[in-house]
Design a protein around this nucleic acid. Structure first.
Length: 344
DNA sequence: AACTCGGGGTC
DNA sequence: GACCCAGAGTT
């Protein structure tokens, strides 16, 4: 299916309605790369401040390559999907060292980098180098499925293949970068997931879903997400100046971030270790629910205080005045800010 | 092909 | 509560 004026209408719409976003004012593939990783599964409003901080702290790929992972993760704190930050860091070192600072300038080479998949390689290649590649993200899936009336589920290999060819075949004859920006912006602002205003849509006349009242049904997805329930008990052990923390090193959520010593249980039943109760006093117990896409975390913070020297065992001791320099999960950050940062 | 990886907005 | 967001890596 090829619609001759599909791309032209999108670009025309884009020139009038586009948002003023910083990564659209540069041709620097490094900055475009940062923006694309930040925006993966992330709304523009949420990612924008992170992008600005990142570019400010690491203006060039070498700055990122020379930073510590803790610092990179700290700048990513609160944004989620932390493998994005770890992969950014890894790939920046590869570019800076093995590629001698020369940023990959084509789709195939971009795709080799850790953290860059088909979408991101297409985006960078077309935005920075105007390479003829079609982006295929959530916005494009939605628009194409509605406009062309594709009922095949988008989260299957068959569906992806079909949408890929559909997207590629409808590229304009030039200006691939601008066009890719246009189709995604159109999906984000006009062809929204829920209740788009089709009455003002420049594509409505030939839109299959609009003509057939199937906007709500498209795009079609096959899989439903399952949520796993987990029980976390964080134990805060502090004296006047310090608190015990640990680094998450397993293949699990929040890898390489820090937290208070964690006891995960299979249900709500948990009692802190007796040696702990004996030497410290429980001053506060806080319960919280933390929702992730695939997990529901039932969390209890057990807050102990005492004068016993914390550095007796093989514990990681963190000065309270330095605690905010460590990257931590959002729920841990919340607890720290509310309970530990006003302690002298 | 199914699963895993965050956090926040929207309805 | 369900779905979505400029997806990618692992199993």
């Amino acid at each position: 299916m090829i619609d001759e004026d599909f791309s032209l209408k999108l670009i025309k719409w884009y020139n009038v309605n586009k948002r003023d976003l910083p990564w659209r004012k540069t041709n620097d593939p490094y900055k475009i790369w940062i923006s694309e990783i930040v925006l993966q599964q992330t709304r523009v409003d949420q990612g924008l401040p992170y992008y600005l901080n990142f570019i400010k702290e690491f203006p060039k790929v070498q700055n990122l390559a020379n930073a510590s992972e803790n610092k990179v993760l700290k700048l990513w704190q609160g944004l989620g999907y932390y493998s994005r930050a770890r992969n950014l860091h890894f790939s920046s070192k590869l570019i800076s060292n093995e590629l001698k600072g020369k940023f990959p300038d084509n789709y195939d080479d971009l795709l080799k980098l850790k953290g860059i998949g088909e979408y991101t390689a297409s985006a960078i290649a077309s935005f920075a180098f105007n390479e003829k590649k079609a982006v295929l993200d959530g916005n494009v899936f939605r628009l194409l499925s509605r406009y062309f009336g594709i009922l095949i589920p988008i989260d299957t290999s068959k569906g992806k293949k079909l949408f890929n060819s559909l997207a590629y075949n409808n590229l304009p004859k030039s200006n691939y970068g601008i066009y890719n920006q246009s189709i995604m912006e159109f999906g984000a602002l006009q062809c929204k997931p829920s209740s788009p205003d089709c009455s003002i849509c420049p594509l409505n006349i030939k839109c299959w879903a609009f003509s057939n009242s199937k906007i709500k049904e498209l795009p079609f997805k096959k899989k439903k997400i399952k949520v796993r329930l987990r029980y976390f008990n964080f134990v805060i052990i502090q004296d006047n100046k310090s608190v015990i923390m640990e680094k998450r090193i397993k293949k699990d959520i929040w890898r390489n971030l820090y937290q208070f010593p964690l006891f995960e249980t299979h249900d709500k039943n948990f009692e802190p270790p007796k040696s702990l109760v004996k030497n410290y006093s429980l001053v506060k117990k806080t319960e919280a629910i933390h929702m992730l896409t695939h997990q529901k975390l039932s969390i209890v913070f057990w807050h102990f205080k005492g004068k016993k020297n914390l550095s007796e065992n093989n514990n990681m001791i963190v000065k309270l005045k330095n605690i905010l320099s460590y990257p931590v999960p959002k729920i841990v950050e919340n607890y720290i800010v509310q309970n530990l940062t006003n302690v002298r």
